[in-house]
Write a protein that binds this DNA or RNA. Sequence first.
DNA 1: CGCGACGTTGATTTGCCTCAACGATTGTGG
DNA 2: CCACAATCGTTGAGGCAAATCAACGTCGCG
Lengths: 189, 189
Amino acid sequence: MNSHLSAYIRRYIDLTEEEDALFQSYLTPATLKKKEYVLQQGETCKSRYFISQGCIRLYYIDQKGSEQIVHFGVEHWWITDYDSLLSQTPSHLNIQAIEKTELLELKETALIQLYAKIPALERLFRVIMERTYVACQRRLEYMFSLNSEQMYETFITSNPQFAQRIPQYMLASYLGITPEYLSTLRKLH
Amino acid sequence: MNSHLSAYIRRYIDLTEEEDALFQSYLTPATLKKKEYVLQQGETCKSRYFISQGCIRLYYIDQKGSEQIVHFGVEHWWITDYDSLLSQTPSHLNIQAIEKTELLELKETALIQLYAKIPALERLFRVIMERTYVACQRRLEYMFSLNSEQMYETFITSNPQFAQRIPQYMLASYLGITPEYLSTLRKLH
DNA sequence: CGCGACGTTGATTTGCCTCAACGATTGTGG
DNA sequence: CCACAATCGTTGAGGCAAATCAACGTCGCG
């Protein structure tokens, strides 16, 4: 039983102790070393992963052959490639540990069984999805409305602790700018 | 009873005829003239809307005072401002009919009651949310990976019929470029 | 110690914006 | 039903944010 996960779930739905235990019995812990992969492009995604400890990046390789970071995941985030997972088609994403990371794996086939046993889980994952979507939407709006300097400052001020954990070239990729340009932005304070 | 909506629902979940009728009894039809608003910035969003006929845009006013289109909605799309709806805070979005549009309004308070009466609806709206999120994610990836010309061509080829229904300045806004620049792109074929 | 990964700096280039002006089309009130 | 205004798309000149390319310094690690 993972108490972090129990507390996380309790923020969204009420489960009995038995339901909580049943849910968690379907989860498989895994530990990743830095730079190890959860998923590599070409594979079909079969699971969602709850990050109990550590830091993850999702990225793909664009036409020019360079890495584009889609987003990051940290403690208490669920991460997966929803596109591949839900359509069961090969993924174009790579999901990789940035540092030593502990995950709980939830197989999608198991989740589908669990929905029948614990209907409240439908709500849990609906709410998670809603919040994830709103975050994605906000990011789109930032990209439309802010220039690179403003995006950098917004990121730094809203994720002060997290910004320390990732190398600058990854942040640059996430923001959609080059490492060189991020470097000049930082000079301007 | 709206047969389009029934068919739409059946693509995702199975409802009995009684459940379908109950669900639809909670929906209120509305007709919008061109340029009428479903929601204006500052209001708190209370409902989701199923578009039975017509075309909608969601946009906000950025710092410079110009309209930025977030996305469009057409027949058989659910549209709302999820951020405002779920947090019950004032919206920064405007939702407006581009042409004469027929909607079915589903109040969020009603939906919350309905979740208890028809648990399968949890699944319906979870699946809708998942698909909506994947679409948002794809759009982010396009913005990172494609230049304006490629984004324009992608939009035109994947939405050939829809592109005819909206003025070019709205498409330019959606793509994140100026109408002037879109005009020069079109010259290049 | 030596190599590779990471960050920085500067010169040059470019994709796209801004601003201004001008047709074409649409719509509306007299 | 016409006249005028408003809306929409186009064109061109000039400017800027950010990319590209190349080179170099530094640090951490095998």
